[in-house]
Nucleic acid binder design. Structure first.
Length: 768
DNA sequence: TTAGGGTTAG
């Protein structure tokens, strides 16, 4: 219909031109311009508009509106100023149109100037103008201006109410949003479809299921337009309130599903952890002919692929996107980036990252976290630097991502710098930031700083408590961990599944066997949390470390699920500590039958044999390990001095200060021998002469790092060393003596925990 | 109306 009239209109236009109608025949051209605007032919309308010599305000308004609705905001604003300059006074219709353009561009400066002009014209109190102003301030992030304006409005219609409600919802003020909805009804304004669509996301975000259900009932009692929109918003609200079943029911009843409806349902499955269902629905959507792939849909689908580590599927989607050319979208690029790194394919993520023309703060945060998650924390720190060099400012998520990199490297100076940086940026009151700081400081050896952060947090969540319990646990402060846990219960907080993992592991590192057993039972009995494999690992570790190897074995047999390699690994570790060769061999066989992963377990068994002087067996295990293609990663220890990390590998002489380090160690060896030290050859792992063993052991990486610390740190500074493997037994004995000889506190973080050495003792009680 | 990056344990 429209195109038919457009054709006819164009014919008339041609006739006018042919008839040589006088160009100043304003009325004809004005009508023609308006006609083109109505047909959506903005470009042609503008050509005609430019030909009109004397334009009235209606014509100006029409073309400004056309631009504003068409997304050509700059042109709308330019035209507005041109109109004012030409002496035409804007009227009450002009302002809403041009303000829409200002909102679109988030151009506060223009909007404020236009607001002033509206005041001059005495039109700022008009309901249309003031609602447009309100909407403009909301979208530019100035909620308080919007609230002031709203308060001053003499007359409010449903659109004004909706603008204020949507504004509050947009700014995350849930209570205020709901208060406005009630107030709106008290003043006789009935919520319409826009009201519902505005409040449902806010309800979802706060998981206010009851309110959500009330809205649903309200909607069922009345007829509304925008059916699909409301249904989709309801579906999403239920999903966000963790009510997958309701979401599914709403989805099934949606009459006309659009691509957003499908996307919302796919997202609902992903949120609920039902990744296979999400992918199945994605297939169904395409079979049913919905081919529009929005960034939102792809985001959810790629997340599902990552979770399932279905890299094949993810790659396939990536390939199709390249073929269809949609891949350029930044959001989709970021989703792909995250999919690759979360599924363990950091190289693919890096390649994609390099290829991306456009990168934003999310892209950088994704790659930074990707590096950390895949064990490359140094690269993460470099990426963080690059990001700032490219002029992109980190946000909360970036900082939450960079802190684990510092934690992983035990780079306290970097961590403290990051802490300073995020404080300057005003992020320090954020809960996630606080949680990441607690973890970082704990892992950098400063549980005292972690505690400080924890108690200064304006609000803690369950992760904060868990992180703090874990922090105490890894430092061997089991009693503090238990006390904090009790305090948490007294405050009425509900522990989650992870809380018990943190607590049990804390008990295990402090030898609190009875307490650990108590809380393991209480977990199911009093808190209705079913034990997972992770809890069982902690229990085997707790019992085994405590020397109750038989009980640990019984525990494994009684477990409700098949033990995996991690469970046996925990028992094998206990066999190593308590030198139980017989059980160690049995466990080792079980591990090999399971198709052992990693090298840790081979090393453990080999250590058990070496400790018993069974060199041939030890060598045999190392041979099997090698034949199976597992290489023992070399022991590496590092220490941060003046913000720089110095790393050492056993026997390494590449460090510039190597000569001094070796000299220092030789000197200390003499002192140590005076105190009765003799190298524990069982940790040398090689059947060589005793003297040679002594030399091998003396230059173990942790000893090198400590000697470096002694040489380069002030005597009052604690020496903090991190190791990529467990501390070796000989080093453990040696460091105890070193702490006495040098009268220094030495803290060593290994893969299992922190060892605090002082005055000749370690707080791990020699079990780790 | 949907959506991209982040924190706890093992």
């Amino acid at each position: 219909m429209r195109s038919k009239s457009l054709i006819e209109g164009k014919k008339i236009h041609q006739c006018i031109l042919k008839s040589n109608a006088r160009i100043d025949n304003v009325v004809v051209f004005e009508k023609l311009a308006l006609f083109y605007v109505r047909c959506g032919e903005v470009k042609v309308a503008r050509v005609v508009f430019d030909q009109v010599s004397s334009r009235n305000v209606i014509l100006w308004n029409s073309i400004i509106r056309a631009y504003a609705w068409n997304g050509q905001y700059e042109k709308a604003i330019d035209l507005y100023y041109e109109m004012c300059d030409s002496g035409i006074r804007p009227n009450k219709f002009t302002f809403p149109f041009v303000l829409k353009a200002c909102s679109g561009l988030k151009s506060l400066e223009d909007g404020v100037e236009i607001h002033e002009r509206a005041k001059v014209e005495g039109l700022d109190c008009d309901v249309y103008v003031s609602t447009a102003l309100l909407d403009f301030y909301v979208k530019c992030g100035c909620l308080s201006e919007a609230q002031v304006l709203f308060g001053k409005m003499m007359y409010k219609d449903v659109v004004s109410w909706n603008a204020m409600i949507a504004g509050s919802a947009l700014h995350g003020l849930y209570e205020e949003t709901m208060r406005l909805v009630f107030e709106m009804q008290e003043t006789g304004n009935v919520p319409n479809s826009s009201t519902l669509v505005a409040i449902l996301p806010a309800i979802g975000r706060t998981k206010a299921l009851c309110q959500g259900k009330s809205v649903h009932c309200f909607r069922l009692r009345r007829a509304f337009d925008k059916e699909t929109l409301i249904e989709t918003a309801l579906l999403d609200m239920y999903a966000k309130c963790d009510s997958l079943n309701y979401a599914k029911r709403v989805f099934d009843f949606v009459g006309i599903k659009n691509e957003v409806t499908w996307s919302a349902m796919i997202g609902a499955y992903v949120l609920a952890g039902c990744m296979k269902e999400a992918l199945a629905l994605f297939d169904k959507m395409q079979i049913e002919g919905v081919v529009t792939l929005t960034p939102a849909t792809l985001g959810s689908v790629l997340r599902a692929c990552a979770k399932l580590t279905d890299i094949g599927r993810g790659r396939c989607i990536h390939g199709n996107l390249i073929k269809s050319g949609i891949c350029l979208d930044l959001t989709i690029g970021n989703s792909l980036l995250s999919m690759y790194s979360k599924s363990g394919n950091l190289d693919d993520a890096m390649n994609l990252f390099d290829e991306m023309n456009l990168k934003d703060v999310v892209s950088y945060s994704a790659i930074i976290s990707g590096c950390v998650q895949n064990g490359n924390a140094e690269e993460a720190l470099l990426m963080f630097q690059n990001m700032q060099l490219s002029g992109i400012d980190p946000d909360i998520a970036t900082m939450v991502g960079i802190l684990p990199a510092c934690a992983h490297l035990a780079a306290l100076q970097h961590g403290r710098c990051s802490h300073g940086q995020l404080t300057v940026r005003g992020f320090s009151s954020d809960i996630s930031i606080g949680n990441a700081l607690i973890d970082m400081y704990s892992k950098c050896g400063r549980v005292d700083f972690a505690k400080d952060v924890f108690y200064r947090m304006p609000k803690q969540d369950i992760i904060s408590w868990n992180a703090m319990v874990a922090g105490y646990g890894m430092h061997g402060h089991g009693m503090e961990a238990l006390t904090l846990f009790h305090y948490m219960l007294r405050k009425g907080l509900k522990p989650d599944s992870v809380s018990f993992i943190c607590l049990l592991s804390a008990c295990s590192h402090s030898g609190l066997v009875a307490e650990g057993k108590h809380w393991f039972c209480a977990m199911t009995r009093n808190f209705n949390i079913a034990p997972r494999m992770e809890h069982c690992i902690c229990m085997v570790d707790l019992l085994g470390r405590g020397g109750f190897l038989g009980e640990a074995t019984d525990f494994i047999e009684k477990m409700p699920f098949e033990p995996d390699v991690r469970i046996w690994g925990a028992l094998l570790g206990a066999c190593r500590i308590h030198r139980n060769i017989k059980l160690g061999e049995e466990v080792s066989k079980k591990i090999q039958n399971l198709g052992a992963e990693g090298t840790g377990n081979f090393v453990l068994l080999s250590n058990i044999y070496s400790a018993a002087g069974r060199w041939k067996d030890a060598a045999h295990i190392r041979l099997i390990q090698r034949n199976k293609g597992f290489k023992k990663s070399p022991g590496c220890s590092w220490i941060e001095v003046s913000g720089r990390i110095h790393a050492f590998i056993g026997g390494d002489r590449s460090h510039p200060q190597s000569a001094q380090i070796h000299e220092k160690l030789d000197e200390l060896l003499v002192e140590m021998k005076k105190l009765g030290y003799h190298a524990d050859g069982s940790f040398a792992l090689q059947d060589v002469e005793e003297e040679e063993k002594e030399r091998i052991l003396l230059y173990h990486s942790e000893k090198l790092a400590i000697a470096f610390g002694i040489l380069n740190l002030r005597p009052s500074d604690p020496i903090f060393v991190t190791k990529n493997l467990r501390v070796c037994g000989d080093c453990h004995s040696a460091i105890k003596l070193l702490s006495m000889i040098t009268n220094r506190t030495i803290i060593v973080r290994d893969t299992s925990r922190f060892h605090h050495f002082a005055l000749g003792a370690c707080n791990c009680g020699d079990f780790w």
